[in-house]
């Protein structure tokens, strides 16, 4: 029982991080039908950026958090303007390779700026772990879960209640129709990039106190986030949240009860099974897009 609880706690923490990353994938996919393979690198930039601002430049934590997220969003803005929008033939496969190129480029930049060694930051709060029937729940984990749920609610409200959010949804359904009603869809795409990379940075900053950060941390996190977004159904915010949590908990249970060596294989095996049974994910819409 104690073990089971501990596996679930650890799975929830990891899952929450996957969920934030998956949110970034879903926002972008919802608005542009694009998967950004450099998304994990934005997580890395957020994490290492925070460490530099907070630990290196000694900026107070709250301000450093905001600056790190804004800084990464600015890079996302530049990425859309300079790379994505200049593409002369924006087919999905072309855009995928551009984002793959961008991920290698950003990793190279990360290596130059932060070096090849890993970095770490102290915990945000120094509360002792909470004891739940022998299992330890970290204050940090609770904080991460709260951030994730709050972020999902905020994004949900943004897309459903605000004019800009509704305009983004409209632009993603039909570019032409949106344009006819006066929605500047190019701005909507730009906004989607900024929002998506900003959530990537949020994932980065909440992960810093619980693990080690290095220039090459993004690839695997991006992959897990992509996997979660798929699991929940691409484009769905709640799907991203559910997908992330499910993946995190399954990984943890797989490592605990079956084999830690095969834990990723277990997670991906389940993903395949779900895709075969429900090809559009747990919460995904029925319509399928192809290249």
């Amino acid at each position: 029982m104690q073990e089971l609880l501990q596996y679930i706690f650890s799975g929830l923490t990891n899952g929450a991080i996957y969920a934030v990353i998956a949110l970034g994938f879903s926002i972008l996919y919802g608005a542009t039908r694009l998967i950004n393979f450099a998304h994990g690198e934005f997580v890395m930039l957020g994490a290492l950026g925070l460490i530099t601002l907070w630990q290196g430049l000694k900026i107070p934590l709250a301000i450093a958090l905001v600056l790190a997220v804004l800084g990464v969003a600015l890079i996302g803005f530049l990425f859309e303007r300079l790379a994505i929008r200049t593409v002369s033939r924006p087919e999905p496969i072309v855009l995928i390779i551009i984002t793959v190129g961008a991920s290698i480029f950003l990793r190279g930049v990360g290596m130059l700026v932060w070096g090849k060694d890993a970095h770490s930051a102290p915990a945000f709060f120094s509360f002792a772990p909470i004891d739940v029937m022998g299992a330890k729940l970290l204050a940090q984990s609770i904080w991460i879960l709260v951030v994730v749920v709050a972020l999902t609610f905020a994004l949900h409200a943004f897309f459903k209640k605000t004019l800009v959010g509704k305009a983004m949804t409209a632009a993603s359904i039909s570019k032409k129709a949106a344009w006819l009603t006066g929605i500047p869809y190019e701005w909507m795409i730009l906004l989607a990039f900024v929002l998506s990379t900003a959530t990537g940075a949020v994932a980065g900053v909440i992960i810093t106190p619980i693990t080690m950060c290095s220039y090459d941390m993004g690839t695997l996190l991006g992959l897990k986030g992509f996997c979660s977004a798929m699991l929940g159904g691409l484009g769905s915010l709640w799907g991203a949240l559910a997908g992330g949590i499910v993946l995190g908990v399954l990984e943890s249970l797989g490592a605990g009860f079956l084999s830690s060596g095969y834990k990723d294989a277990i997670a991906f095996g389940l993903l395949l099974a779900i895709l075969y049974i429900r090809p559009s994910g747990i919460f995904g819409a029925k319509d399928l897009h192809r290249f």
Partner: peptide, 20 residues
């Protein structure tokens, strides 16, 4: 005997299993 991935962010599950 347990293992972890080089880029994993959390090893609590493996440590819990060992502690058992």
């Amino acid at each position: 005997e347990e293992s972890f991935g080089a880029k994993d962010t959390d090893m609590t599950a493996q440590l819990t299993k060992i502690r058992k």
